[in-house]
């Protein structure tokens, strides 16, 4: 039997002893088909029982065992160690964007709180019927992906926006908001869209894509965020910079097939938004001095009529 040794470099932190996190190396003989979780338990049994981590179901449904492997969040119970070895080493750390309590355990309270911000429960229409409310299979299909969320916080962990702004409601909450916005039985769609279009909501997502890349289920928050934005745009929730920015794109490309960047900046900020316009001045000035300013006469593509025809049917093509 071939020697199957792997080095697990695990981030440790003991609140009673350590000032800051540090790592500890464990050499381990890998069992065939071993998962990260099973191997961590092996380390605890054979080498160090003080390693702390969260785990429960072992079958990728409870969401307890999210952690960072080689810098990216995964679910430990269903991740094969063999796929994580880099130069003989596997780096293990707790999930990000949350305070470390001990070793691989983080304070997950802010995550539960962020869910509360989107009113994560059905707000149905009127009195309940005697039987079930009806819903078509297709309507169930619209909420099916977002209901697979196991609240593991892998998306929250790797979200770039949360890294610089903990007040951002976060990808899991947005996916949860999606689950209700698109539930045909919910009566509060417009209220939800209105609230989620405000600061710390859906337009604060920087589109880094980490959430969907890390999501271990079908939830895929970025796709849900995109769908929320589409619905918000369709339903006229335009009173925010994100929507204005999207309108700017629509208008510019619809007219020229191309972006008039100068105009887009002004459009997004708001033509009458004095503080916003003023805030654009430093960078605008700098770019002007450098000769970097996009041409004042905006570019129009050849055969722009084809594009105009497409945009002429904009609303029709929403369906």
């Amino acid at each position: 039997m071939a020697n199957n040794k792997v080095l697990f470099r695990i981030q440790r932190f003991d609140p009673e002893k350590d000032e800051k996190p540090h790592h500890q190396d464990f050499e381990i003989e890998l069992a065939p088909g071993a998962t990260i979780l099973k191997t961590l338990h092996q380390i605890r049994a054979e080498q160090d029982p003080t390693l702390a981590l969260r785990y429960s179901c072992g079958s990728a449904i409870c969401g307890s065992c999210a952690m960072k492997i080689n810098g990216h969040a995964i679910l430990a119970c269903k991740t094969q160690v063999s796929e994580c070895v880099r130069d003989g080493t596997v780096r293990v750390a707790p999930i990000g964007n949350l305070k470390i309590l001990r070793d691989l355990v983080v304070d997950i309270e802010p995550f539960w709180e962020s869910l509360g911000k989107v009113k994560p429960y059905l707000m149905p229409k009127g009195a309940a019927p005697d039987r079930e409310r009806t819903q078509t299979p297709a309507q169930f299909g619209s909420i099916d992906p977002s209901t697979t969320c196991i609240l593991c916080a892998a998306c929250y962990s790797d979200c770039n926006a949360l890294e610089v702004d903990p007040s951002f409601v976060g990808p899991a909450s947005l996916a949860k908001a999606h689950r209700f916005i698109f539930d045909s039985r919910d009566a509060a769609r417009q209220q939800r869209l209105r609230e989620i279009s405000q600061r710390t909501g859906v337009w604060d997502c920087t589109h880094c894509g980490e959430c969907s890349t890390r999501c271990p289920t079908e939830t895929k928050p970025l796709e849900r965020i995109e769908e929320i934005r589409v619905q918000a745009m369709a339903d006229g929730h335009h009173g925010n910079a994100g929507a204005r920015h999207a309108l700017g794109f629509r208008e510019s490309v619809g007219k020229r097939g191309f972006l008039d960047e100068n105009w887009l900046a002004l459009r997004s900020v708001g033509f009458f938004n004095l503080p916003g316009l003023i805030s654009l001045m430093p960078v605008g000035l700098r770019m002007m001095i450098r000769g970097k300013m996009p041409p004042l006469i905006p570019h129009t593509i050849d055969k722009v009529d084809e594009v105009k025809k497409i945009f002429a049917r904009f609303e029709e093509l929403r369906k």
């Binding site: 429960y121 059905l122 005697d130 079930e132 409310r133 009806t134 819903q135």
Partner: peptide, 20 residues
């Protein structure tokens, strides 16, 4: 019990005539 769960929002797979 099932109807109550559905009223509370539980997502159930549906039949072709939109029932649980």
């Amino acid at each position: 019990t099932i109807y109550e769960m559905e009223h509370w929002g539980c997502p159930f797979s549906r039949t072709e005539d939109n029932r649980i």
